[in-house]
C-alpha cells in the first residue's frame, strides 16, 4: 500500500485554488509532550481522589482479555459500582486497559490512542503476555514487555485474568493514584526519547508524527 497520503502534495481546494499540504506537519501537532506540574497539597490530594474514583476506561479491546471486560461491566461483577465506566474516545478516557498481547500492528494504534489521552492517564495491562510475552514469548509478532513502550501503572497477571483479578487490579490502581504515584503521563514525557526509540525500533513503517495529540 502506498504511503502517498502522508507525502507532501498539492491539493485543489473546493474554490479551485491549489494548496500545498504536508500532512504530517499540517494535520498533526508533533511538539513533544511536556511534563505537567501537579497542584500542591490538599488540592492535588482532592484531585487524585476524584481521579481514582472516576476511572473512565477506553473501549479498545486490544487482545483476548477484552472478552473478560464484558462480564466485568455486567451484573455479576458490575464494575460501575466502583466508578469504572466505558468511554469510547481516547480524548475523554483516563485509563487505558491493554487487554492482552499486543501485536506490532496493534501497538502502533495503541501508541496513538495513548498519546491522544490527556494527562493524567493510567495504563492497566492485563495478562501474562503484556508482562513477559506469556504464551507468545517466542512469537515474531507480539511484544514482550509493554513497559518499554509506555509507562504501565498496574500489571494484572494471568492468562486470562479473571474479573475478580481485574477488580483487584483496579483497586490497586486506585491506591496508586490516591498516593500520587500515578504519574505515567509525566514519566512518558520525561523519557520521551527512550520510549520513542523503543517504539520506532519495532514499528517498521512509521507513518505518523512523532507525537500526535
Amino acid at each position: 500500500m502506498g504511503k502517498e497520503y502522508i507525502e507532501k502534495r498539492t491539493v485543489i481546494s473546493p474554490e479551485g485554488n491549489p494548496i500545498e499540504v504536508d500532512p504530517l506537519k499540517d494535520y498533526f501537532c508533533d511538539a513533544a509532550p511536556k511534563s505537567c506540574k501537579s497542584a500542591s497539597g490538599i488540592i492535588e490530594k482532592f484531585a487524585n481522589w476524584a481521579r481514582s474514583e472516576s476511572l473512565w476506561v477506553l473501549g479498545f479491546g486490544t487482545g483476548c482479555g477484552a472478552i473478560e471486560m464484558r462480564p466485568l461491566m455486567t451484573p455479576r461483577f458490575d464494575a460501575y459500582r466502583f466508578g469504572i465506566q466505558w468511554r469510547p474516545t481516547p480524548r475523554q478516557a483516563s485509563v487505558f486497559v491493554i487487554s492482552g498481547y499486543l501485536s506490532v500492528k496493534t501497538l502502533k494504534r495503541v501508541v496513538r490512542s495513548y498519546e491522544q489521552m490527556q494527562n493524567p492517564k493510567f495504563v492497566v495491562a492485563l495478562g501474562s503476555c503484556t508482562i513477559n510475552g506469556g504464551m507468545y514469548w517466542d512469537s515474531y509478532n507480539t511484544i514482550n514487555r509493554l513497559d518499554h513502550y509506555m509507562p504501565v501503572d498496574v500489571y494484572i497477571a494471568g492468562c486470562m485474568p479473571r474479573p475478580e483479578a481485574l477488580l483487584a487490579g483496579f483497586d490497586k490502581l486506585k491506591h496508586i493514584i490516591r498516593e500520587g504515584r500515578g504519574e505515567g503521563a509525566n514519566k512518558y514525557a520525561e523519557n520521551f526519547d527512550w520510549y520513542k526509540g523503543n517504539q520506532k525500533k519495532i514499528i517498521k513503517d512509521w507513518d505518523m508524527p512523532d507525537y500526535n495529540w
Binding site: V104, K105, K108, I131, N132, G133, W137, D138, S139, Y140, N141, T142, I143, N144, R145, H148, N198, K201, I202, I203, K204, D205
Partner: peptide, 26 residues
C-alpha cells in the same frame, strides 16, 4: 505491517531468535 524479514511461515525463519532480538525479553 512493515515486515522486512523473510516471510515468517517459511521453515528457515526462526521466530524465537527474531523475538529475542527485537522485543526486549524480560
Amino acid at each position: 505491517e512493515g515486515w522486512e524479514e523473510i516471510p515468517p511461515y517459511r521453515r528457515d525463519f526462526d521466530t524465537k531468535e527474531y523475538s529475542e532480538k527485537t522485543y526486549f525479553p524480560r
